[in-house]
Amino acid sequence: MTALLYRDLMLALRAGGGFGLGLAFFLIVTVLVPFGVGPQSELLARIAPGILWLGALLACLLSLDRLLALDWEDGTLDLLATSPLPLEAALSIKALAHWITTGLPLVVAAPLFGVLLNLPGPGYLWLVVSLALGTPALSVIGTFGAALTVGIKRGGLLMSLLVLPLYVPTLIFGAEVARRGAAGLETTTPLLMLAGITAGVIAVMPFASAAALRINLR
């Protein structure tokens, strides 16, 4: 299992795209939003948590179609499915690798981008906490979407349509944590909901992903 994680991280590093793409998209969104909204720092401060969360979510979505498609094209998925590694474990590892290459850089970079959106002082901690708790769910749900659409040429659109509704709860509670944190309010309830969604998704989704992938491999 560590071999698969190591290989996926190595491929993301060598092929470039992995680390850069999501981050660049996130940067573009946060740089452009102030231009679109106009020079009203108060309004920006109010919408900053939501924009940052939305940017992170879309950046995550952007890299999903590469998650399994490359392994499908070169036959790796067939061979992994016949290997001693359970498909559920293999997909969990691939989701973890996706989170390390996409989610983690977003979590680290988010405070930096918060400055661009005039995020209020107390919001930074909660933004990082909510992203760190929420983005793993995005990767795991995304793996499910990728497993569902893996055999389809140009399946990116279909996958986005399938995955986006599943992302909504994470977005709502994640952005709520960041918003309340920025406003100096109590964050416990949305934080617990967010953590619960992530924990539940990590426990259940790999089985759904593996089942979907098995059907697609037939």
Binding site: A3, L11, T76, P84
Partner: peptide, 23 residues
Amino acid sequence: AHSDGLKAMLSVAENLRFWASVF
């Protein structure tokens, strides 16, 4: 099968070592 499951960005030894450790 027809496709070998090789990664273009990994070396020959790295490809083999990956499959060896999977098994």
